[in-house]
Each structure stands twice: as C-alpha cells, then as structure tokens.
C-alpha cells in the first residue's frame, strides 16, 4: 500500500510539470483564442461583450477570400516545388556511399539550424536591384537593366522554398532509404526500364515520405508571415500577415482569432488526412 502511494507520488512529480505546463500555456491560450473570436472588438483594441458571430461573418468578404486563395496557392506552389527539387536530392543522398551519406544529411540540416532571418537577409542582399545577382548579370551582359527581383511574388516563393526545403528532403530521404535495393534489382531483372521501375516501384514505395514532406511544408507555409514581410515587402497580403496584422496593427482581435481558428481547422483536416496514410511519429 505504501509502495503504491509513493509510486503515485513519483508519477505525479514526473509527469505533473509537463501536464500543468501544457494546460496553462497551450490549452488555456487556445481556449481564450476561441473565446475572443466570439466577442466584439472595442475602441481600445481589446475585446468586449456581447457575444456575436460578427468576426466569422466578416470573414466572408471578397478581399479576405482572395487573400485566403492566394495563401493556399502559395503554400501549394511551395510544397510542389520543394517536392520536385527535393526528391532528386533526397534520392542522391539515399544512394550515396556509406561514408558521405551522414555528411550529406548533416549538410541539409545545417542551414536549417541557422536562424531564418539571417539566411533571408542573405537572400535580400543578393536579390536587391543593385545586389550581386544583378551586378553579375549586368557584368556579363545578359541583361541591360537590373531586374526587379526583391519585393516580388517570385521572391516570396523563392524564400518559402528555401525555408522549407529541408522539411521535404528529410522525410523523402528516410523513405527512399528504406526501399530494399533488391526490389529495384528485381524490377531491372524483369526488364523494367529505369523510368518504369521508378514510376512503378520507387514512387509508390516512397508515397509516405512524399505525403509527410508535403504536410511538413504545406502547414508551415500557410503561417510564415515573415518571408513575405522580408522578401515580398508586404506587396501582397497572405493569411499569415493578415492574422498578424489583426493582432498588432489593425487591432481587430475577434477577426484575427477567427482567422487563426480557420488556420487550425485547415491544419487538423490535413493532419487527419495524413494519419490515414501514415503515422504521426513520421512527421517529427
């Protein structure tokens, strides 16, 4: 009996802090966000009673729908580009020799450990009108006038792909690595051409990796407001910037909260879709 009691105590000491932490700093904030979305904004930038559905109604506005569509498109574009450019890289790493493989994997992760602001700042330096890329292109005479690259939608896509590429490459690498080489050999022995064996063997077997990679790029892509702030110069508005502005500059908390919930709903739907195909653990 005493042992059982002391076991309960040890259990509480071990697990309790984490549970309390999550309740206080994760669950409570989320509940407050839900609550705020049903309140009315006041003149001081805060929220008041009465409870209304105003915030949700105001979301059905053409401008917001455009922003929403543009964000979904940007996230989709980013995801596709990450997969298309990431797949060959992941395959090359997975098939490299034993000695170089860990180095190649480490080298994909390394830039991702360095702060994104620093890396995006590097891109800004390069993309500027009087930046390196323009200087070089002008120098070799490919162009006569500097190209406007920074503060365009293209720069935003580039920044997003840059930020999220490792998230696509790593799951792809893991799933390509898992393929038993004898399967490919078998396909080859049975006379399948390289392309055919890729389409019929490699691609289907790496579907879990493709799926994990897409989820891991698509979800963050919806919320990365700072990429468009830095490289897009705020020229086009995306969902992330819109939400951020409702809390910091426009001061319409209910609308911001409602939009945040929309973001969560999209995330949950995507995750559900994912857990049907793969395991949650693969995503981490």
């Amino acid at each position: 009996m005493r042992k059982k009691l002391s076991n309960k105590l040890v259990q509480t000491v071990m697990i309790g802090p984490t549970v309390l932490w999550l309740l206080a700093f994760l669950l409570a904030p989320l509940i407050i966000v839900v609550g705020i979305s049903f309140l009315t904004k006041n003149a001081h930038g805060g929220v008041n009673m009465p409870i209304t559905l105003e915030a949700y109604k105001s979301m059905a506005n053409l401008d917001y729908l455009m922003i929403f569509a543009r964000s979904m498109w940007l996230a989709a574009e980013t995801t596709i580009l990450c997969l298309v450019f990431g797949y060959p890289l992941a395959a090359i790493i997975a098939r490299s020799s034993k000695n170089v493989k860990p180095i190649l994997v480490l080298m994909v992760m390394l830039p991702f450990w360095i702060n994104s602001m620093i890396r995006l700042y590097g891109w800004m330096t390069m993309l500027r009108t009087e930046g390196i890329i323009n200087t070089i292109l002008l120098g070799i005479g490919i162009i006569d006038e500097p190209l406007a690259m920074l503060y365009t939608d293209g720069a935003v896509v580039l920044g997003m792909v840059y930020e999220l590429l490792p998230f696509a490459v790593l799951p792809l690498y893991t799933s390509i690595e898992k393929i038993d080489p004898s399967l490919l050999e078998a396909a080859c022995d049975l006379g399948a051409a390289r392309r055919r064996s890729f389409m019929r063997v490699t691609l289907p077997l790496t579907m879990p990796g493709i799926f994990a990679g897409s989820i891991q790029t698509f979800i963050p892509a919806l919320g990365l407001f700072y990429v468009s702030d830095m490289l897009g110069g705020g020229s086009s508005m995306y969902l992330g910037n819109l939400i951020k502005n409702q809390f910091l500059s426009a001061r319409n908390w209910p609308l911001g909260a409602a939009l945040s919930l929309l973001l969560i709903v999209i995330t949950i739907v995507l995750m559900r879709l994912y857990t049907r195909v793969g395991k949650l653990d693969d995503i981490v």
Partner: peptide, 30 residues
Amino acid sequence: FEFKLKQLISDSLYIPIVIPELVMGIGLLV
C-alpha cells in the same frame, strides 16, 4: 507508469508540434 490518461497526455504532446506557430504565438499573446 501505466495510467488512465496516459494516451491522452502522449497525444496532446503533438499539439504544440502540429499547430501553426502563428496560432501559438497569438494564443500566448492574448
């Protein structure tokens, strides 16, 4: 340990990982 809420606790550990960072930041702000 094995206990009743174990699965729930294990699962909720994934929430901070999968919810958009933006929402987490806003949640903490409010």
